[in-house]
């Protein structure tokens, strides 16, 4: 059952650490008929990070925060990309949603623990994950603002590519930093703050999606319309997380 093993590897690590042996046993008993259910189970787990096995409630809140951050950054990246492609004043229409989104991020942000060890861990993990994309992005800004005269075709092609790859890398790595440090270095936001943050983020996502969709409809820009649909769809995992957070056992002690 090589395929079953491959599908089990698609489950989140904390889930595999806890259930992989028993899941494998059950998959062997189910045979080929169990494979679609095994695949659906993996997808379902990724949509419910707050419910993954955890030893402390903080871990669940940390994972929920990382998931929300990923959704927020993905939305921002897609909206930014659409604004750049469209070359219109579309981003002005998104200002309100952007404020909502920033407020949602601030509200859901984990607070660093005020100890030297925690701050050192935070700085070390942050640097390890973010230094390269930050440096690459900064280099693009410096080159773009200091180069005089016409740029060579190679530079003209390379700079935007490096810029977008840096932004993508940042959007992928920031949630991973949160996951890395959520146990030792930061105190994740609690249920109330996270749920309020999800409400704000959902409102922001839908406002951004609607703005882009209206603009795309008037300019008949299919790619922008598709992006708007993807942005709206990004609210689905956030809403799953909200429901999961409210179903969790209240932390004690």
């Amino acid at each position: 059952m090589k395929l079953a093993g491959a599908l089990i590897r698609l489950y989140p690590k904390s889930f595999r650490d806890r259930w992989a042996d028993e899941l494998r046993l059950e998959a062997e008993a189910a045979g080929v008929r169990g494979l679609p259910d095994l695949a659906a189970g993996a997808l379902s787990q990724w949509l419910h990070p707050a419910l993954w096995p955890a030893t402390r409630p903080d871990q669940r809140y940390g994972r929920a925060t990382a998931s929300l951050t990923a959704v927020t950054l993905a939305t921002w990246l897609l909206a930014y990309l659409t604004g750049e492609q469209d070359q219109t004043a579309i981003l002005h229409g998104l200002n309100f949603a952007a404020y909502l989104m920033v407020f949602a991020i601030v509200l859901s942000s984990p607070w660093p623990k005020r100890t030297v060890a925690a701050l050192t861990t935070l700085a070390r993990r942050g640097l390890a994950r973010l230094a390269i994309p930050l440096l690459a992005g900064a280099a693009v800004v410096v080159i773009a603002n200091t180069t005089t005269g016409p740029a060579t075709p190679a530079v003209r092609d390379l700079l935007p590519a490096v810029w977008w790859v840096s932004l993508l890398a940042l959007a992928l790595q920031v949630p991973r930093v949160i996951t890395d440090v959520c146990e030792q270095a930061v105190r994740p936001a609690g249920r109330t703050r996270l749920c309020t943050s999800i409400d704000l983020m959902t409102a922001a996502n839908l406002a951004i999606s609607a703005t882009i969709l209206v603009r795309a409809a008037s300019s008949r820009h299919f790619l922008s319309a598709a992006t708007a649909v993807v942005i709206a769809a990004l609210t689905i995992p956030a809403l799953f997380t909200r429901r999961d957070l409210t179903s969790l056992r209240e932390p004690t002690g």
Binding site: L23, A39, G41
Partner: peptide, 9 residues
């Protein structure tokens, strides 16, 4: 039987 993903989910 429940499927393996459904059971452990």
């Amino acid at each position: 039987r429940l499927g393996p993903g459904s059971l452990y989910g």
